[in-house]
Design a protein around this nucleic acid. Sequence first.
DNA 1: AAGTCAATGTTATATTATAACATTACTACA
DNA 2: TGTAGTAATGTTATAATATAACATTGACTT
Lengths: 176, 176
Amino acid sequence: MFKRKISSIMKKKQTSPNISKNFMDHDHELCFESALKDFKQHFIEKELKLTPLRLKVFQLLLKDHRPLGAYQILDLLRKDGFSSTPPIAYRVLDFLIEHGFVHKIKKLNAFVACSHPGNSHSPTFMICRKCEKVAEINEKESGLKFNKETSSEFKIEEAIIELIGICKNCTKIEVI
Amino acid sequence: MFKRKISSIMKKKQTSPNISKNFMDHDHELCFESALKDFKQHFIEKELKLTPLRLKVFQLLLKDHRPLGAYQILDLLRKDGFSSTPPIAYRVLDFLIEHGFVHKIKKLNAFVACSHPGNSHSPTFMICRKCEKVAEINEKESGLKFNKETSSEFKIEEAIIELIGICKNCTKIEVI
DNA sequence: AAGTCAATGTTATATTATAACATTACTACA
DNA sequence: TGTAGTAATGTTATAATATAACATTGACTT
Ligand SMILES: [Zn+2]
Ligand SMILES: [Zn+2]
Ligand SMILES: [Zn+2]
Ligand SMILES: [Zn+2]
């Protein structure tokens, strides 16, 4: 009976994927460390060079699920003693984007750490205009699909999908 | 029997919406004039002021289903004797966007004439990276939907959806 | 040690967009 | 008919975002 209860909880967790974790209270220290570990692991697997600059930029982007603009990143780099002219940020960001560790949010001209690094993918972003946090959901989670018509008419190579609105947490706060 | 044939043709036209007309050969003069007529009609209905500048910018955007950047528009305006400092273009574009006559393509930092003016909507764009033309499809045509999970987790107010790829016409050309 | 190469640093500039204020030209109505 | 109000356009300056081109560094190779 006890076991059953646990398994029921487990099941509930699985069927309700935590797609908006980023917006809600969560153990962000754990979240941060886990993402960082993943990041480092991918560098090893792909035999990429993890330099202090690349690490620093990724850590900055992991801070709080809020995207950072290139010039915000430069300011933060300056504080840490790195060089801080525009190409520094853009080059590192290009590298991290190319290898799937970072995405650019077109709506904001800003950058976020990828939530599913390693796999190339066409992510969908939810952008809360209130708390300004961003969550990335993958294709399966979003339930997003184009109909046969569309796919037969146009060979899709890349999809930019950004949803702007209000997150669950900010809705909750609004009601109070 | 003759009537029947016609209605069958009509039906075929309806069930196969011409969502990628913009990419294919078509009577663009008709396309242009029809869009322009619509545009003018909406100005009357909404009691907006159709100035020479607004008309000119919209006409420029109707030219060939290719988006134009603000500074491209300014160059074209200059040739027509209009003033051509940045705020001129951005203000007119803001106005046209606000009233649903124009959209901005984030991927390209460029602007296109709306294909379904009058109705506020969250359009989906198909952007051909080869011929650089753009087609707008509405929600029903795209068959795009988010699952219940997503909509319960996040209150969507605006959706930016841009599909980059190769259009039907450019695919055809590639094969040849 | 000299050569190679990727990463970072530096300088300059391109591209996209907005702020702030001035002028024009149409409307209202005194 | 003049003048106050207002929306549109014009002007000047500058902000924000991004890239080109070349120099330096430092690790690794031979
Ligand atoms: Zn977190
Ligand atoms: Zn929020
Ligand atoms: Zn046309
Ligand atoms: Zn094409």
